[in-house]
């Protein structure tokens, strides 16, 4: 079976996003919040390649982050990024959705999902949280993620160099 020439590009984007998220982002914090490079990459890939690729990239990249970084869970981030990739991909399968909602909003919504999921995980694990700190950290993370969303989207679009594929209903090969 022939491998699409853009598969290596998607893998490269995911790898770079994971490394940046693990090695660089934790050191760039404002008000204890940090930008989420990975969610922007997953959203952009999902926008261009659809729900399936977005979900697979989200799951694999989330799992990689949990393996490489000192995170107290394994599988939680993978599940959250999978949900983001799939959700954005599914939403963008609709005709005209990409024009209505800008990329930044997708990234902010995706980051909301990740943050809420992680807070829920903390609550489930009975870890102490202070409401004020939680609000400040989440707001900071959302703002920082919104700031880096567009540049990352432009980079991903350049690397993939393709119009987005609406799957699976409108594949040209379906005739």
């Amino acid at each position: 079976m022939a491998v699409s020439p853009r598969v290596p590009a998607v893998i490269a984007i995911a790898l770079v996003a994971v490394l940046v998220q693990v090695c660089v982002m934790p050191f760039l914090t404002v008000a204890q919040g940090m930008p989420d490079f990975l969610v922007c990459a997953v959203v952009s890939v999902a926008l261009f390649r659809g729900a399936l690729v977005g979900a697979v990239v989200g799951a694999c990249a989330g799992m990689a982050v949990e393996l490489l970084a000192p995170v107290g869970t394994l599988g939680a981030l993978a599940l959250l990024y999978l949900a983001v990739g799939y959700g954005v991909g599914r939403f963008c399968d609709r005709e005209g959705a990409q024009e209505v909602l800008p990329v930044v909003l997708f990234c902010v919504i995706g980051e909301c999902v990740v943050q809420v999921g992680q807070i829920a995980m903390q609550v489930l694990l009975a870890r102490p949280l202070i409401a004020g700190d939680v609000v400040r950290e989440v707001l900071a993370a959302l703002i920082l993620t919104a700031l880096i969303a567009l540049p990352i989207h432009v980079i991903v679009r350049t690397v993939l160099r393709a119009p987005r594929v609406i799957e699976p209903y409108r594949m040209p090969s379906d005739g």
Binding site: L38, V71, E137
Partner: peptide, 9 residues
């Protein structure tokens, strides 16, 4: 290396 999430100590 630090956790890429502020929720983990």
């Amino acid at each position: 290396g630090r956790s890429p999430s502020p929720w983990y100590e």
